[in-house]
Simulated scan of single mutants.
Amino acid sequence: MSGTDGWVSTGLAWRDGRAVLSAVHGRRTHEREVLPGTEVGWRLGGPRRCIGALLVGRDERTPCPHRAGIAPDGGAVQCPPCQSVDRGLALARDQILDDGRTYRLYLAWFGEGLLKVGLTAEQRGTSRLLEQGALAWTFAARGALPAVRRAELTVSAAGLARERFKVRAKVDHWWEHGDAAHRRAVLTDARARAHELLHGHEVELLPGHPVVDQVGLFGLTGGAPAAYHAVEGLADGAVVAGRLRVPIGRHLLLDRPGGEPPLLLDTRLLTGWTLTPAPGRPPSGLSLVPRARPEAPDTQEALF
């Protein structure tokens, strides 16, 4: 099937606390809420295309004027020209010094030893923390973009938290993440230490902001499935199918019939493919990597 026409996946986003999958056809957009228990099935058509860019001053994504192709199994969802003008990437690369909006500095906990510092536009609410799959988080400060960015760099340079973690490192902590009291204590302490570092900065400190725990929201109270197959690559003609579980950040867990391990799909891999309904068809054409919960270390001393 040619991917030159039809609905092109633009991935998963969180809006008003709901996970939404979206696709575009020209300038038309279709959105579907990710509801646990829903059976889905999509056949992928290529080539995989750039999804365009979010431009400064616009709320709607602008389609790629080049209809450029992108790597079928890569993490990038935009061609280089669209990347160069995308508002979100420009912010991440410090190419926008100030845009007049208010930003919030956050601390996010992804697992033991994985404490992240970042910023998000106040108008986005908590969407960024949901999309990143933060297991727990708190806002630490607010202010104009230049001041919040300086605060982020200060916290990172002090070694209190890092600005980035690889997706695999976050996912591996889904099996074991301690209890809510521990997560709350880590973040509360980290926020207090961050405030000491930010004394004199031109930001409003938020000492009373609650610690928000998202483990239950993501269906991870008992941890991730003991075994699953991670989708590492997609191809033209592949079929993605299964029964949806609760989404985790931008990841989908799909149960398969017959007791096979569920699939874990990073929806960024789905982005850029043309989707056609494939009801009743099993998954096929997927590059899968089996993963399993690590065995607990044997702490019992040997008899001899």
Rank of each mutant, 00 (worst) to 15 (best):
G223I: 03
P282M: 04
D189L: 14
A121N: 08
G208C: 11
G178H: 00
P225K: 01
G285L: 14
P47T: 02
P63M: 08
A90W: 05
H251Y: 14
L205D: 00
G216T: 10
P262V: 08
W174S: 01
V212R: 12
A292S: 14
A185S: 11
V186R: 02
V24F: 11
T299I: 12
E295M: 10
V167H: 11
H209F: 15
H195W: 12
L55T: 09
A235H: 01
S284M: 13
P297M: 07
G133T: 03
L286H: 03
A278N: 05
W273L: 05
T274K: 00
E176V: 10
V24E: 15
L269Y: 02
V167L: 15
I51Q: 00
T267A: 04
D172F: 11
G249M: 02
H177V: 10
K116C: 08
G113N: 06
V8L: 15
L135N: 01
R58P: 03
F304Y: 14
A158M: 09
G41S: 13
P210H: 09
L244A: 11
R43M: 14
R48I: 10
R58K: 09
R150Y: 07
W42D: 08
A53V: 01
E301Q: 12
T126V: 13
A241F: 11
L269V: 08
L89W: 03
A121F: 02
A13K: 00
A144H: 07
E131H: 07
S9P: 04
L115P: 08
P63Q: 02
L198R: 00
D59W: 09
A238H: 03
L105D: 06
C79A: 09
T221H: 01
D255G: 08
A235C: 10
G219A: 05
I51D: 01
R48P: 04
L303Q: 10
W137Y: 15
A190V: 05
L35R: 13
R184K: 13
V239M: 00
R15H: 12
G200D: 12
D266T: 01
R87S: 10
W174H: 13
R49Q: 15
L244P: 04
L44M: 08
T276K: 06
Q123S: 15
V77W: 03
Q132P: 01
W137C: 13
L54W: 04
R101E: 15
L270Q: 00
L275R: 03
P247I: 05
P80G: 03
V34W: 03
V117K: 00
T38G: 10
A76F: 09
A235F: 00
I248M: 11
G223C: 10
L253R: 00
P225Q: 07
Q300E: 13
G272W: 01
G74Y: 05
R191F: 01
P262E: 01
R43T: 12
H182M: 14
G17F: 10
V167I: 11
Y106T: 08
V203G: 05
H195Y: 04
R124Q: 15
C64A: 04
G233A: 15
R245T: 01
T274S: 11
S287Y: 01
E202H: 14
L217F: 14
S22I: 06
P72H: 01
G69C: 14
R281F: 13
G111T: 09
E204C: 06
T274F: 03
V117Q: 08
Q83M: 12
